[in-house]
């Protein structure tokens, strides 16, 4: 089985791109499954089911979806292998700009859209910087110049990635993407011994864990203070 991790900010078009890409992959006679990691809510599983794709979803609740991803991906891979998939795609909501679900030796795709503004590539951390493939969506809504400027910003934070433009509505570019997602030579039987590309911060703050009361004495764990400047 091949595994691909797809990640990206909310609503950039991850599901649309994955669905269009799977159409091309299925044409090659391959069996594909999907797992969606999100935080509080997602309807993506319904979209995948409608397209006849086997899907599981996991909601991280109070945790960042990427933390939840690492603690579950091993079981998910076992599930995929048991179901005889040729390709298992994980879709994760990239809600936290600090974390990323990428694993060394596993194809990593970051999806971002042309609408997010040219300052965005610089703000996104390892999720963009250490991806193998960066998919840029919603090119239909902007001009050629805006696409070129945006792509050059992406290139300046991740010069090693292959950058592809895919339209999530028409599927333009999705065939091309599909050729990069599956290789006969790749085989995983388990994730044992594999490592994350980037460490995730181990500490959580008390508010991540459900604290609601405000005040110094309730703050535990990962606490940092804002610098508001010196009073004159």
């Amino acid at each position: 089985m091949n595994l691909v991790t797809v990640s990206g900010p909310p609503s950039v078009g991850k599901t649309s791109v994955i669905l269009k890409t799977i159409e091309s992959i299925k044409n090659r006679g391959l069996k594909v499954g999907v797992v969606k990691f999100d935080c509080l809510y997602t309807d993506d599983d319904i979209l995948y089911e409608k397209a006849g794709i086997e899907v599981r979803k996991g909601l991280s609740g109070g945790l960042c979806p990427d933390h939840y991803f690492v603690s579950n991906i091993e079981e998910v891979v076992d599930w995929g292998i048991k179901h005889g998939f040729d390709l298992l795609i994980s879709e994760s909501a990239g809600l936290c700009n600090r974390c990323s679900p990428y694993i060394n030796g596993i194809n990593a795709v970051c999806v971002i859209d042309n609408l997010s503004g040219i300052g965005t590539p610089k703000k996104i951390g390892p999720m963009l910087k250490s991806a193998d493939i960066v998919v840029i969506t919603k090119g239909d809504i902007v001009s050629q110049a805006e696409r070129e400027v945006f792509a050059s910003r992406v290139h300046s934070v991740n010069p090693k990635a292959v950058i592809l433009h895919v339209n999530g509505l028409t599927g333009q570019g999705s065939f091309e993407l599909s050729t990069l997602l599956f290789s006969e030579d790749d085989h995983i039987t388990s994730l044992k011994g594999k490592t994350l590309r980037f460490s995730m911060p181990s500490a959580l703050c008390s508010y991540c864990l459900g604290e609601t009361r405000i005040g110094e004495s309730y703050q535990m764990g990962n606490v940092r203070k804002i610098d508001l400047g010196k009073e004159q």
Binding site: N114, L115, G117, I118, G139, D140, I141, V142, S143, Q144, E146, R147, E148
Partner: peptide, 12 residues
Amino acid sequence: VAQLSQNMNFVM
């Protein structure tokens, strides 16, 4: 290839 899009508006 450069592509002239359908869209007629800028977003920036």
